[in-house]
């Protein structure tokens, strides 16, 4: 079997899922021998590559960069795993959706103007700072997701359970407490 080409991506999330991934400890060494990590926040590759076998997507789709990215990921990847509650449900990042239309503007105003002690201003840098979407979406609302790995964050042994199934060539399937939200 060819080495599995694996990627991990960080969209609208707190990076907790990636921290949990690093919590895999010595399993990471085993993993490093069996897969090639082709793209990740912990790998210095700028462009999401072609022909990825499996990607773990952390975070919800919150801004225009994320939107473009998930479509690119879908085109270039065989299997997408929604990695963690933000990717699976929108979770905390999607709370702003409750504010209805115009929520993007009101959260920016709250965070960068009302709560700012110094230099209140909304960050704006066309081409660099991506505009927020009107509505935060879980990944499967935008593109087809193959597998779900819930949890905030998913505990390391849950991530391991899924990866071991993939490495064994099986269709990953988590059940019971391994799919508990929160």
């Amino acid at each position: 079997m060819d080495t599995l080409r694996v990627a991990t991506v960080w969209l609208g999330g707190c990076s907790g899922c990636h921290m949990s991934f690093l919590d895999l400890d010595e399993f990471l060494l085993e993993l490093a021998q069996k897969v090639e990590l082709v793209f990740s926040p912990i790998v210095d590759v700028k462009e999401y590559p072609e022909n990825v076998d499996l990607v773990l997507i952390e975070g919800a789709v919150c801004n225009e960069d994320h939107l473009e990215m998930v479509h690119k990921i879908r085109r270039r990847t065989k299997a997408i795993v929604a990695f963690g509650d933000c990717a699976v449900t929108g979770n905390v990042t999607a709370i702003r959706n409750q504010l209805g239309r115009g929520n993007a503007a009101s959260v920016l105003q709250r965070a960068y103007l009302e709560c700012a002690d110094l230099n209140p201003q909304i960050p704006k840098e066309p081409g660099i700072v991506p505009p927020l979407l009107e509505r935060v979406m879980p990944v499967h609302e935008v593109v087809h997701v193959d597998y779900y790995l819930p949890g905030c964050p998913p505990p390391a042994d849950r991530i391991k359970a899924l990866l071991e199934q993939v490495l064994a060539g099986a269709e990953p399937k988590l059940a019971g407490k391994d799919i508990k939200f929160g």
Binding site: A82, V88, T89, G90, A94, N97, Q98, L99, G100, R135, P138, H140, E141, V145, Y148, P150, L174, A175, G176, K177, D178, I179, K180, F181, G182
Partner: peptide, 20 residues
């Protein structure tokens, strides 16, 4: 939450309403 994982719900297929 417990029933959801016992019944195998790993995601929600319907769009969330996000009511206020």
């Amino acid at each position: 939450q417990t029933l959801a994982y016992r019944q195998g719900m790993d995601h929600v297929r319907y769009d969330y309403c996000f009511p206020k």
